[in-house]
Each structure stands twice: as C-alpha cells, then as structure tokens.
Design a protein around this nucleic acid. Structure first.
Lengths: 340, 340
DNA sequence: CGGAGGCCGTTATACGTAAAACCCGAGCAG
DNA sequence: CTGCTCGGGTTTTACGTATAACGGCCTCCG
C-alpha cells in the first residue's frame, strides 16, 4: 500500500503528521517497545497511518543512529560455485534466526581495481565472515577493524580471529583409506592449483596417508578449477610412461567430472579400469554417471558455524574455533583396481 | 593501517582534527572534488591523516546525506543455482563499471515469515532488479516505490516496469527443430513444475513447434527442479505403455542429468536409444557424459542487461525492454532415433 | 587607495531515525 | 493540602557525512 506521488518516500515524520502525534511516538510504536509508554488507541492510529502511507524506515538513517546494523558481510572467492552458495545459505539461516542479515561480497577476480570490500558492500556492517581466503586477502579484511571470522582458512593466518574449519584432512584420509583398502597403490592427485588452506591441507593429508602404506605412491597433477582443465590434467597423468595409475583423487567434484571424461576419452571405464573420487558432494556428484564416491562437506554447516562464531564475537566473548565433521560417501566411481 | 584502540572507528572529524583542518575540508578532499578549493599541501595532509587513522567513510551516514546510494538490489529465487550466480556476476560487472554496487537477496523459500526484501536487504537502495519471480512476489516488490527491472519474467505482470528477457521461446523452438529434423516424433517434455514465465514459455513454444509437424506428439511429465525428481519423472515417461518416446526435452540441464540417469537405469543408451536435451548450458552440460545438447542462455547477459535497464530508469528515461538471444549447442546427447 | 574578485578555507545545516530527557495532568498517600 | 508517582506522551539531541553559504586575506586593476 503506497499512495504518495512516487519519488517521495514517506518518513516517520510524515506518519506522525498523519496520525496526529510526534515523530518520537511513531518511532516508539513501530519499534515495538512502546509498552506502557503509548496507549493502545494511539499505537493503533500510528500503525494505520504507517500502513496507509506505505512507510518503510530509512535503513541508512537507522544504521547511522544505532551505530550497529545487525548485518554481516560474507566474503567469498567466487559465487558460481555451488559450495559458496551453500555457505551463504547456512549463514543466512542462522543470521535470520537472530535478526541479522547477510550481505554477500564475491571478491572480484580481476574486476577493475582491487576494490575495498567494506565500501563496495554498500551496507554498514557489524562484522565480517571470510570464506576460503588467501592470507593477503585476509590481511586486508583485518584492517577493517571489524570482528572477523575465518571459514575454511589457515588458522595460522590470524591467531586472533575465530575460525570454522571443516575437517578436510580427515576427509582426505578417509578417501585415501577407502582407495588403499580396495587395493589401489598408484594414485594421482588431481590437485586444484589454488593457493588456499583447504587445498594445501588436502594435499598434505593425502601424501601422509599414502606414506603410511608400503608400495603406495601418489603423483600430483595440478589443474585450474575447471572441468576441461581437469580433464587435460587427468589425461596427462593417465598417459605418462610407466604403469598406469589406478585411482584419480580429485580436489573437488568438478575436477572429478573432468577426470571421468579423461578416462572415457582414453577408452578406460570408471570404475573398472580406473577409480575416481571427488570432494564436497555437490549436486554434481550424484548427477554424474557413475555417481561419485566423494566426501560430504556440509557447506551449510560451515556458513552456519561462521555466523554463530560472529554472533558470539559480537557479544564480546572470546573467539571460538569450531570444526565441521565430514563423511565419506562411497558410491559407484570407485572399485578394486584391475588385475595387473 | 588502523591504529585507534579497536572499537572506535575514525570519523571524518577525527581525520580533520589530526590534519588540523575542518571536517568539511576532509570531505572535500576525499570526495575528489576539491580542485581549486583546497591547496595541494592541505589535501596531502588530509590524505595522510586519513591513511594513518585508517579512515573509512560511514556508509550509512553517506547514504543518508546523499539520499541515493548507487546500490541496486538483485532478487533471485535461489542462489544454489549456477544460473542466478551468473546473473549476479553480469549485473555486478555492469554496476561496478558505473560506480554502483549490487546487493543480493535470495528470496527465501520458507525461511521464517515472508520477509520484506527491502528491509532484509540491509542496505539503502536506489532500485530493484527481480529475476524470475512469480507474479505475486513481483507485486510485493512494486510496492517498494523504487524503480524496478524484471528479468526473465512475464512482461504482462507489470506493463510499467522495464524487462529483460531471454528468447526462451526461440531456444525451445530450436531444440524442437533439431530433434524433429533428426526424425524424432515421440517427445517427452520433462517440465519443471515451477510457476514462472520461462517455464510456461518453454512449454508453450515446444507444444507449438510439435503441433506444426504431422505425427509428432509431446507428452508432458512435470517434476521438481532436482536431479532425482527428474530421474523419476523421466523413468515414468519412458515406462509408459505404448511406443517408447525417443527424445526427452528437459527444462534445464539439471533435469537433463536426471533424464540421462533414468535412461541408463532402464538399460537405454544416450543418444543411441533415446536423445536428451537440456537448457541454459551450465557447467553441468559439458561435465556430463555424453555432453548435453542444450541451448546457451547467457545468464551474465541477462544480469548485465538488467543493470543497464535499471541505470537508464534511474536517469529518468522511460522503461526499456531488452531481449537476449540464445544459441543451440548440438552436442553428443542427441542423435537420430533408433529404427522402429 | 578602494573595491572586486580569486583563493582557501570554515561554519552551518540537513538527511531520518532512536532514544534520552523532559513535561504535564491526574491519582493518591501522608 | 502537598508532594510523588506514573501514564502518556513531546521536545530535543546525536549519529557522520556532503555541500551550500559564508568570509577572511591577498592581489590586481581602475
């Protein structure tokens, strides 16, 4: 219900005039804290006037007045990834439950000059949640002087901030265990060539797991985070001289899709000739054929945990450090290696 | 570079004090419009003080003062879809080129009470871009009194607003033409059971195209927008009594993935026994095997077009109505039907 | 020598809201 | 009768910024 000639939004003063009260009364009534301060008939008149004028509070003015905004900024490296969309969803849910909002800032990859997240966010902020950021990007965020929560990032990058990290090392250990116990010994790590904590951790954990098994080796094949790049990388790895690897351990489900394509192009069947594993358990994992053996890493839980951590930080409590468990989902893309 | 004891952010007045000038001068200098009003040494002193104090303008105060915010709200039905992430990317790019920002509002599907996008957005807004919204949701957005641009929505829902629509009807016509010319006559439309303009348009266009060819029929099988639901739907369609359909026309790539799984579960090969087509050309389309024949609908262009339309609207010019062309990408998931 | 402009700032103000401080009349206890 | 409380409001103020309006001082020209 709006009414005014478009262009001029109604202010609380307009509502006050229409209801025959002062602006302060309008603020009290609509702020829901008028009990015992305003009589019911007056309150009702104010609400009616507000409704009739289509009044919406000016958020800028409110933020300015209150000094806090009940708004968090979520910084993600890329939005096109389902993973970060899910992180957002988790954070937004917890935020909504606590009267907060979440504004998204996809840290631009080359879009103009490196912009300042705080001003580009276009909203006044109470705190920042940064997901999967490299150390330098984090440093910039810390200069904001706002409470900071790091998700999926190296705890060493900022000892002071709260962190929420999925147990990726454990996940990779489970994948390695799964493959090794199936009898695989020659593994390829189709590794995301991205400088971030998660991927470093995945590499470290895989190497460690393999090191514990005599005769097992892992060759690392780096790739960009795209299906085609992963296909090329996997094809390289499968075509190298010497005995063929029997398992492709991919840093995420998208790369695993590329690996599957590589196998097929070389005339190899998955999983009979070569096993493939993913990571994250996105929609893609079960959309592919065969369905991917992967590790489910609940991005929603990461986002939700991040928002919780931020809320406790905003209450002045000391930074927390949470951890999100992961689960192996053995599916159709892995099997025992072919007989030598 | 921040310095103050955390908690108290530096204001322009603090900078002024540090630089030995008035607050107005700080505003002039940092506003880049000081030429001929402030001497170079003074300006330099201000900039130095600002840097040293880690000054960042208070966005709420600035918005309040200026009355406009150079910020647009993008309302999308769901963020987990790569499609909308791309719409955002396109809009954000154009926005950045024009000194604007974009704040995202994923219209929640059941998250608490139907929230008001304008207040939940947490930012003061200049305009709204709504993507793929149903009529009732659009009506709510129009009450905001802000310039509105509709993407991928029924132009009839609001004659007044600007629209940017991909030529989905043309896309579906191309898909139908492709299949019909390959010789297919018994089609199934694996149709998204979502009340929105695009999907209505796709159904309409497909029906129309088939109607023009004697002996061609299309059976509609509705499904939720999920891989598993689509698989079930496609399995139903392929198992119906009577001659088996030879092509599954899916409303988007995700549904096509489900259709492929259905075919495989029934022992049918794609494309030899049954052809499958997608829509949108997301990453998924080329991650699958076989790669999907699909229609590329540039979500980036839709987003970019939406932002352009909003910018012209903000200049007071009359609402525009743009259209985004689509292109058929014939790939490996379609072939001639098997001989009867 | 006086006034008209530049030049380089400063002072003052408004944006819309929330809330602290204040105010007034009525009821009520002492 | 006086002074206090209390309900039901109003007046006032502050948040931080951008900018319009104002004004000293120096120079230059008539």
């Amino acid at each position: 219900m709006r009414s005014d000639p478009a262009g001029a939004r109604a202010t609380s003063r307009d509502v006050a005039r229409a209801a025959g009260v002062s602006q302060a009364t309008v603020s009290l009534v609509l702020g829901e804290k008028w009990h015992g301060r305003v009589s019911e008939p007056t309150a009702e008149a104010v609400r009616a006037a507000a409704e009739q004028l289509g009044y919406r509070p000016n958020l800028a003015a409110r933020s300015l007045r209150l000094g806090r905004t009940r708004t968090a900024l979520l910084v993600v490296p890329a939005l096109t990834s389902e993973f970060f969309a899910r992180v957002y969803a988790g954070a937004a849910r917890v935020a909504a439950d606590n009267g907060f909002g979440v504004v998204l800032y996809p840290s631009p990859e080359g879009v103009g000059p490196a912009q300042d997240p705080f001003t580009s966010a276009r909203a006044a902020l109470d705190g920042v949640i940064a997901s999967s950021m490299a150390a330098d990007a984090l440093a910039a965020l810390q200069d904001g002087g706002l409470p900071l929560v790091m998700l999926d990032s190296d705890p060493a990058d900022s000892a002071a901030a709260a962190t929420v990290n999925p147990e990726v090392a454990d996940g990779m250990r489970q994948i390695a265990g799964h493959l090794l116990s199936l009898g695989h010994r020659r593994l390829v790590h189709v590794a995301a060539a991205v400088d971030s904590w998660t991927f470093r951790e995945r590499a470290r954990s895989l190497a460690e797991a393999v090191r514990g098994v005599p005769g097992a080796v892992v060759h690392t094949e780096p790739t960009a985070l795209e299906v085609e790049a992963a296909r090329a990388a996997a094809e390289r790895a499968l075509s190298r001289p010497g005995p063929r690897p029997t398992a492709l351990v991919c840093d995420d489900d998208l790369l695993a899709a590329g690996a599957c394509k590589a196998a097929r192009r070389l005339g190899l069947r998955v999983p009979e000739d070569v096993s493939v594993t993913g990571f994250d358990d996105l929609t893609l994992a079960t959309a592919l054929e065969p369905e991917l053996t992967t590790v489910r890493l609940s991005a929603e839980q990461v986002g939700a945990g991040g928002m919780h951590a931020l809320l406790t930080a905003l209450e002045g409590r000391p930074p927390t450090s949470a951890t999100i468990p992961v689960t192996l989902f053995p599916r159709a893309s892995t099997a025992a290696p072919p007989p030598a």
